[in-house]
């Protein structure tokens, strides 16, 4: 039986960094996936993910309910992502001022067509549906854990997953839609 998140949080607060490492093992991939939704590149997502965990560590003593570490961390990731979006907005503003080009079109870098289709399809989902997919597929398809992080009922979770799947299927079937 694995140690609960709450126990690991309390151990971390007592100075046990290895306990925080275990929390990192449980959630790092999920956090990177959430960050990827805004960075659209893996390297950026990895950097943002590290930022999320650093911030979480520093603020861990402010977590009111240690058993809710997962949802709390996801919320923190979303905040970091918002800051990233603001930064991206700022960078574009600066770019526009420096570059006299009339129009700049963003380029795609992925080459794997099938994977690219899937990435595109996932990006078309709304935030909650994407999060449901991330949690479900990165938490070993543990519905209970996914419910906890998303704050939805079991039926709500499966509804989200079904909607996500339907949208992905539709998109892959007709990418222009």
């Amino acid at each position: 039986m694995s140690v609960s998140d709450a126990t690991l949080v309390l151990k971390t607060l007592e100075g046990d960094k290895a306990a925080f490492g275990e929390l990192y093992d449980r959630y790092a991939a999920l956090i990177r996936a959430i960050c990827y939704d805004v960075t659209r590149n893996v390297t950026g997502a990895q950097d943002l993910g590290q930022e999320v965990f650093l911030r979480a560590y520093v603020k861990l003593n402010k977590l009111a309910d240690p058993d809710r570490f997962g949802p709390w961390l996801v919320g923190m990731a979303r905040n970091v992502c918002r800051e990233y979006i603001r930064g991206r907005l700022r960078d574009r503003h600066v770019l526009a001022g420096l570059n006299p080009a009339e129009t700049i079109t963003a380029q795609k870098s992925d080459s794997d067509e099938q994977l690219l289709d899937l990435k595109e399809a996932i990006s078309k989902l709304n935030e909650q549906e994407r999060l449901a997919l991330h949690v479900y597929y990165l938490q070993e398809q543990d519905a209970e854990q996914a419910q906890k992080i998303l704050g939805v009922s079991r039926s709500g979770l499966y509804r989200l997953l079904a909607k996500a799947r339907k949208k992905i299927e539709k998109y892959i079937g007709n990418p222009e839609s």
Partner: peptide, 18 residues
């Protein structure tokens, strides 16, 4: 100056709507 990009994922509007 106009900068045009594909509307992929959350955009700058999320700064307001997030």
């Amino acid at each position: 100056v106009l900068v045009v990009s594909d509307a992929e994922g959350p955009g700058p509007e999320m700064a307001i709507l997030s």
